[in-house]
Design a protein around this nucleic acid. Structure first.
Lengths: 197, 197
DNA sequence: ACCTGAACACCGTTCAAGT
DNA sequence: ACCTGAACACCGTTCAAGT
């Protein structure tokens, strides 16, 4: 059987035309977000998909719901990547690699980090599940690093993600800010104190 | 002579009633921002000051202009604090102290960090001058620290402020995030490498 | 010279009518 | 069962009329 593309978040059955409209909306949203950021007019997305605004709202009652659908693919892939990196012998390197990958994904749409940061602890948000996937993945690698003593013991996975989220966001605000440099700094702060060996 | 309160940013002469209105607007903005964040309806601010919206726009053509006026006092004080801390023998401690103070000020109004982050490198913004004051103050203390070898050589003042700005912002987004813990982490990342001595 | 507030523009959201 | 798009609500900004 052929692989289904962009599966719906809720897998309740949809009428054929509704399913097609759903997919079109996600596809157009992806393009529009990439072009104009996560705050693009929802009206435009509907129009570009050749549909009425009402249809968009029916499928995605909030902007976060639409973002969630658009983001679903890469959050899953980033989660898988984390699982694979767990096998890496050098856990500090694994974490660094994963964070660099995460950061690249969170930067594709301007405004996406902001949306994800806001949804991270808001379980009512339709973006929350995607955030949870990221949080779990982070937990995986931080735990892995902690077991190896490759990271300070007093730092939680949540804190690591908070730092990184903050850095991605500032870099979005300030053109001259250099994300890879800031990320390197942040990673340095995670090192275990040298005194204990 | 009595000390003048809340001096206007531009010191061009104003008619007595205009000056009074200006001051009222700043005072009400301060209250409204503290209550509802930096995105409060400008309409409300005008109404609370007992003035028409047009008057607000006349004095403050953009929201940033109003924020700039509201923020002016503490940015100046934070700058003075930096100058005084330059006399501190322990430059790392001085920087840490200043950053903690800065962070406290940037957190008073929800949404203020976001506005300042956006204006930091946007010289067209009416908030830019206030940001520049902060940037200069930071430069002062980072240079001081660098002279003492109390900070890694490859970190700029701009980067320090970027990190800290990002942290304040995430903490505003996520209730469970602990700013003082994250700040401590960030400060650790600034330490010079132990190998050189 | 400055103030007022109605008018305008913009955009997110809903809902009655249609298929 | 789903779609459409006009209608509504909201809020930032302008500007003609007034003092």
């Amino acid at each position: 059987m052929p692989a289904r593309r962009t599966p719906a978040m809720t897998d309740r059955p949809l009428r054929a035309d509704a399913r097609r409209n759903y997919d079109r909306l996600v596809a157009e949203a992806q393009v529009a977000f990439a072009e104009h950021g996560a705050d693009t007019l929802l009206d435009d997305i509907a129009r570009r998909a050749g549909l009425g605004v009402g249809t968009l709202y029916r499928h995605f009652p909030t902007r976060e719901a639409l973002l969630g659908a658009v983001v679903q693919e890469w959050t899953a892939s980033v989660r898988t990547e984390a699982e694979m990196l767990t096998a890496q012998p050098d856990a500090a390197h694994a974490l660094a690699t994963w964070l660099r990958s995460l950061v690249r994904h969170m930067g594709v749409y301007r405004g996406l980090v902001a949306a994800m940061a806001a949804s991270m602890e808001d379980s009512a948000s339709a973006l929350h599940p995607s955030c949870q996937v990221i949080a779990d993945a982070g937990e995986l690698l931080v735990t892995h690093a902690r077991r190896q003593g490759a990271i300070r013991e007093d730092v939680s996975a949540a804190e690591v993600l908070q730092m990184v989220t903050g850095l991605v966001w500032v870099c979005e605000q300030q053109p001259s800010a250099d994300l890879s440099r800031l990320l390197r700094l942040a990673l340095d702060s995670l090192r275990p104190p040298p005194h204990r060996g």
